[in-house]
Each structure stands twice: as structure tokens, then as C-alpha cells.
Amino acid sequence: MADQGPVRGRISEVFWAFLALGLTSFGGPVAHLGYFRTAFVERRQWLTESAYADLVALCQFLPGPASSQVGFALGLMRAGPWGAAMAWLAFTLPSAIVLVLFALGAAVLDGPIASGIVHGLKVVAVAIVAHAVWGMARNLCPDKTRVGIALAAVFTVVLVSGPLGQVSAIVLGGLAGLALCRDSAVATPSESLHFPVTRKAGMVALGLFGGLLIVLPLLAGMAAWLDIADAFYRSGALVFGGGHVVLPLLEAEVVQTGWVTSDAFLTGYGAAQAIPGPLFTFAAYLGALLPGINGLLGALLALLAIFIPGFLLLVGVLPFWNQFRQWGSAQALMRGANAAVVGILGAALYQPVWTSAIIGPYEFVLALTGFLLLTVWKLPAWMVVAIVAFAGIFLPTP
């Protein structure tokens, strides 16, 4: 293990290490975890290989952006609460700034070239989400039981629209996993993780997490900023499985409510694939477009609201994790919930992603090309986005 050094020096070290990652970590949450392992296990030796694997397992168990939660926890381990804050800020800020600038500039884009690029960004979203569904299905639905749970989740989302359908699918998936996926659970590593978080602090964090989840919907409607905080906090609190899964939740909150058009939503989602850093910064793009609030303030509020629940839950669980992971039913429950996530994302691939972007055979061919570039040629996501967005210039005008 590397020497810890003075706290102030460690905070600075955390900030610069994660800023470098925030500027260069393309490829989504799974790729981010690979970058983190190289940077903090191999190069800096902040923790052991087994401890890192345990930390990743913990964050994959919880709702929220898994890679950002791992980064937050690494900063917490290295330099305490300020280290956690700096890790999140440095990793998140570059992509958030780019997406906010894109949102504020996209409103004034016109002309055939700009329209073609926007059209291409909508099409590439189909390839990106299809690739995510394919990869997640292979990893999270490897047997007939979990395929059935995923299929049931699709039916649930179709029959019960909006956030209620998605939450119901996850809850039912978790219960099904608890009953049917016990044989799939594997033993967890015996090595313990240690964080500077007391049990009292953990209980306070869990109380805040649950309290905000209950109180914010009751306050919604009193002011525009409370509506925004409620929508994005709820989306961040209910996301299992990584950044792509937030797509249907955010679509239900901002498109179905009429805050943001479907075209603007998919354009921003496509742009978010072309930049490094966490996909949750897509919230900053949406926040900058929301009515009733200043663009920059809306972006900041949406960004904080979508990340805070995952961090509160992580801090709340950390003091109890070593005991909780010994519970034999915990892994079974999460396997069922993760299978349901695949179904939710599969439903989102059709509506709104496919139905809004694939309006003819040319769009279909371009989306299929993007999918094959990702899955067969294994090009990085940002390169595929750039190629398909450029090709959108040559598509017939929709």
C-alpha cells in the first residue's frame, strides 16, 4: 500500500488523479472501472486487488452510478470526506461542462449540416443502447430464470407506464430473484473494507436518503426547483445497473412531462456518448434545458440531485457492508433486480429510442452499422458517435 502522507496533500492528489480520468475515461462505466483499477491498484497502489474487487461488488449492489460510486469511495478511503468530494468533482466536471455548453448552444443550431449532425446523434443513441442491452443481457441474464425475469420486466414497463412501472419492475424482479436465484449466488470475498465512516454517520446518511425520497414528491409543485430536484433525485435513487439504465427513468420524468422534447433528449444522449466521464452528467444537459429556471442553475441542480442519492446510500451502507454481504439472500435479490434492469432497458430501446430515431431504412442501416462497429470491430463509443453523427449529415432530411 502507498504511503498516505498529509491529508491536504492526499486531497490534492485525489483531485488531480480523478481530473486526469475525467478527461480521458471514455467507454462507459465498465471501462471506467478498468481505468480505476489501472490507476489506483496497479500504478498508485492505494488498495489491493481483492479490496478493489470487493469495493466494485459493493457499488454494483447499490442503486446509482456504479463507477462514480467507486470513485467516491476511493476518494473517501484515501483522503476522507473532502477526498470523496474532490474525486466526484474532478471526475464529473469535464463532461458536465461540455454537455451544458452543448445544451445552451444546441438551441441556436440551424442549417442542414447542424440538423444532420443532430439527426446522426439521435440514430447513434439506438446503437449505444442496443449495445448496452446486449452486453448487460449476456452478463446479467445468463440463465432461463433471469431471462424470464427480464421479459416480465418488459411486460411490466409496457403495461404500467412512467416511473411507477420501472420501480415496480425492479421491486418485482428483486422479489423473484430472492425466490428463484439463490442457486446463482456465489460466496463473497472474506477481506473487509474499512472507511472513515461511523455507524452513526451511516444511519444519518440512510435517513437522509429515505427522507428526501419521501419528502421531495410531497413538496413538488410548490416551486420549479423543487420539481426538478424531485425528478432527478428519484431517477438517481432508483437506478440499478449503471448509467444507461437512467435513460428510461429520465425520459419518463422530463419527456413524458413535456419539459424536454424527445428530439432534444435523444440528441443530448447521443452527445453524452462522445465525451469521457460518467453518463449521469447527461442530467446537466437536461437541467440546462428545463423551463422555469436559469439554464446554468438548472444544470447544477439536476446534476447534484441525480448523484446525491447514490452517494448517500453508499455512505449509509459502508459501515454495515461487511456484515450485510454475509447475508445469503442479498446476492439472490440483486441478481433478480439486475435481470429486471435488462428488461427495462430493452423496453427503452424500443420506446423512445428506436421509435424517435429510426424513421426509415437509411436510419436503420446507419444504426446497425454503429452497433456492429461497437460489438464486432469494438471501436470506442466516442469514435462510433463521431462517425455516425458525421454520417447523419448525408441522411435524407426527416
Rank of each mutant, 00 (worst) to 15 (best):
N294I: 12
M383W: 13
Q69G: 03
Y35G: 08
I170Y: 06
F36Y: 10
G242I: 02
G162Q: 01
A114C: 00
P94G: 09
P189V: 12
Q4N: 13
G270K: 03
A337L: 09
R182L: 06
E49W: 10
A179L: 15
G287Y: 02
G287F: 02
I275W: 01
G83I: 00
G80Q: 07
L93F: 14
F36Q: 05
K122P: 05
V260P: 04
L206E: 04
P6H: 00
I228Y: 08
R8D: 14
F232K: 00
W82Y: 14
S115K: 15
A272P: 09
T24V: 12
L312N: 00
G34Y: 05
G343P: 01
K122I: 09
C141G: 00
A305F: 02
F320H: 08
V353Q: 04
L313T: 00
L21C: 08
G5F: 01
G111I: 05
S161E: 15
K200N: 13
E363T: 08
G135E: 09
V204Y: 07
A389K: 11
T92L: 10
E363D: 13
G287S: 01
L33D: 02
V14Y: 08
L366Y: 03
I308G: 05
M203I: 15
W46L: 06
V215H: 11
A391P: 08
C59G: 07
M86F: 15
G28W: 09
L290R: 11
G310M: 05
A391I: 07
L175C: 03
V123Y: 02
V167D: 11
G241T: 00
Q273C: 14
A284F: 10
P189D: 14
R8Q: 14
A84R: 04
P380S: 10
A264H: 07
G177K: 01
A152W: 07
G242T: 04
V126Q: 08
N338Y: 09
C181G: 00
T156P: 04
Q331D: 14
C141Y: 01
S25A: 15
A96R: 08
F280P: 04
A237C: 02
L23F: 11
Q273L: 12
L99W: 04
S115N: 15
A57Q: 13
I393M: 01
L374Y: 05
R43N: 09
T188G: 14
A51F: 10
S95G: 11
K378F: 05
V160W: 13
I387S: 11
L366T: 00
C59R: 09
A84V: 06
V365H: 10
D263A: 14
A386D: 10
G336T: 04
V204R: 07
L368T: 12
L333C: 11
A347D: 08
